[in-house]
Amino acid sequence: MVLVYAEPTNGAFKKVAHELVNYARKTADVLGVECHALVLGDTPGAEALGAYGAGTVHRVISPQLEAFDAAVYTVAIADAAKKLGATVIILPHNSTGKNITGRLAARLEAGSVAGANAVPMMKDGYFTVTKPVFSGKAFADVQLLTDVKVISLAGNSIRVEETGGEATVTDLAIDLPAAKTKVVKHQVATGRVPLPEAELVVSGGRGVKGPEHWDVITDLAEALGATTACSRPVADSDWRPHHEHVGQTGVAIRPNLYIAAGISGAIQHLAGVNNSKTIVVINKDPEAPFFKAADYGVVGDLFEVLPRLTEAVKKFKG
């Protein structure tokens, strides 16, 4: 059985959970086995995960799961997997997953692939999973050699398809240890899709020339419903917050659309963004290296081009 940890986003099952469950379904189909989901806590709407391919949803409800503690979550997932006889366990490759995936693989002594970007395949007789390496400069085909396998999925990796109907929801009892960590503050900005999950991203570089000019970027982002990002020097100069910095030493993203304005396209920047589906580059220098990695290019002054593009988007959206 493939068991997927369906992670809620701010108290509801959203895109992250839908993509994970659908990925698990596709993995289960490759292996010809069942796909079950695991829910930690009493998030409403668990039965609706059936639409993305989970036949059964197992729910563990316990006060110990209300605040996040990676060690406790790991025990919950590991023990659920053992009880249910899961052979493949799937997690998100996000801040939650990065705290759990390694723990789970170590606890189960399972081969793992962190940050997979494609549905596993059976190749040369081995269960093989592809993941980006060298910050997206290449992909590695990783064979998992153990009976139990752990995979974490990078966001925006597959096309989410609705397949089935409602899932059966059952409760699962698991003995959990006491948490050693205490969450004293949990703060998330609402109303904005976080960068790693964003499908549309508008990004600005040093060419925007200062935080006081950023409205050309944010206006376009708002018109599109996109998330904003920036190059490293922009974050280093505190023009924008650090969490917006994309690239090899920042966030690696793979949106459907990446619009880069006033960014030259250094190799370390490209490494984190070049797996975006469509790239639009706006730069006044026709020799800027970024044009070589772009699908669409606009050679021009971003202070003229961006407002024009924002207007065009607004017109298009009516």
Partner: peptide
């Protein structure tokens, strides 16, 4: 527990 079978480029 794992083995890299090969690589591809984007």
């Amino acid at each position: 527990t794992t083995r890299i079978a090969g690589y591809t480029k984007p």
